[in-house]
Nucleic acid binder design. Structure first.
Lengths: 246, 246
DNA sequence: GCATGCGGTAGTGTCGACACCGTTGAGCCA
DNA sequence: TGGCTCAACGGTGTCGACACTACCGCATGC
């Protein structure tokens, strides 16, 4: 998947289409993608003057873009302080995954109730494509397909509120998931989870689907935790996660 | 409960403390309270020029305040269009309550696990105060106490993400709840629900607590639905709820 | 009478400037 | 040397102005 597509996905997750001017959208996408891809480190200052120079605009649209990302939990803003890339603590991360688990299992239940057979077929096609990406160890492509799959599921279920919240939580975990999927073997596990989930949906077994997706979420969190442990032996040097309220 | 307190609650729900300049906070509180109290009707235009005149500022802080409220679902903004007071459709409302039910039942489960006895005592005290308000039919005071009670519960549980989402959903339903609690008998039902919930927590029965709060949410939705039916006989005159994407 | 095209108006998005505040580093004192 | 003060700097919040656009009423043609 190309950078072009990355921005398309971000545009959808941030609901930029028609909601914001293209200028603001462009900035939000660039910064958002930077955070997710790790180009911008957690805790790093996001100087609005510098950003406005980079995009050759005034600070007003930059500010607006940063506020958008703040809402999605990617950026932290305090009055009169420089905005920074969000640096969620381990506790924050666990909290996010806990809520996510609950809502995903709700999603699975609704999916079983509401998805048509045709829609399930479509989802299965997507998962099969993902299996190929996983086999090819194409982490980036797999990663974004995963996001798109989930977005499609929320669309099928049709609960706008649920979709918005899950999109927001997805964004928050994107940078972490990007890390965790890099772990060897994780891709295969992940695609297996997806396949089992689709199967349960096809068998119209809501309980099973909920349980499967909840389990997958727990495993995803565990992978992230291990990755963080590994990144910070003792109390690491640079990329150490800091409590957001410090 | 006075207007003063209303604004204090709003300040907390909108997380304005330290996050925004006082000027922005003031505008957001005024508009937010207006929407919740019904002073500003759903669908009504929120002219930023007029607002800036009212607060004797430029349009920049007004814009920022409106964006804050947009995040919380109280205001709808489309690029180059006038911001409007959100007018959720009946479907939207059902969706919100569905998600809310799920998260509240998660909250109840966690509350049972994590709340200390002292904290439960505190909650019980609050509920007892609420019963008095309900007996006195002091709708406004009951209404805000209810919001505060829930906010306290989320604090006790200590999951920041969960708290933020529930606060946001609470705001979205506030104007509806304000209506629904006005219905005769509703206050008594509501306080009964709260009392049973606390009891279940004291007995450390997570399943029961979850079920109770879920039931209470369903009843709240039903009350809102009835209220809307009543407000719009056939396809009412002024305050008819309109699809947000029209 | 009705649809269509066309200004005028009102309101939004962006800009550059300015005032205010947080930060930082140099100098000072103990 | 170590902690404190303070001033210069860098960056944020707000402002008023301007360009652009959605909206609305009007006129025109049929």
């Amino acid at each position: 998947m190309s950078d072009q597509d990355t921005h398309l996905v971000l545009e959808r997750l941030l609901r930029l289409r028609d909601r914001r001017e293209p200028l603001v959208a462009q900035i939000a996408e660039w910064v958002g993608a930077g955070i997710i891809e790790g180009r911008l480190q957690p805790g790093q200052d996001l100087n609005s003057v510098e950003l406005s120079r980079r995009f050759d605009t005034s600070r007003t649209p930059v500010r607006e873009a940063l506020m958008l990302l703040e809402q999605e939990g990617l950026v932290e803003m305090k009055a009169r302080r420089r905005p920074r890339v969000a640096a969620p603590s381990l506790t924050d991360i666990k909290d996010i995954y806990q809520v996510r688990r609950q809502l995903l299992s709700m999603l699975a239940g609704l999916l079983v109730q509401r998805a048509t057979d045709a829609e399930l077929t479509e989802l299965r096609t997507r998962v099969e494509a993902m299996r190929e990406l996983a086999d090819a160890a194409d982490v980036d492509a797999y990663f974004w397909s995963h996001v798109l799959l989930q977005e499609r599921m929320t669309e099928i279920v049709g609960n706008t509120t649920l979709k918005q919240i899950l999109d927001s939580l997805a964004l928050r975990t994107l940078m972490l998931r990007h890390l965790s999927l890099t772990r060897p073997g994780r891709l295969a596990y992940s695609v297996d989870d997806q396949e089992r989930l689709i199967q349960a949906c096809e068998e119209r077994d809501g309980e099973l689907a909920s349980a499967l997706i909840a389990g997958a979420t727990v495993r995803a969190l565990r992978a992230v935790e291990e990755q963080i442990e590994q990144d910070t032996p003792g109390s690491g040097k640079a990329a150490r996660k800091r409590r957001s309220a410090d």
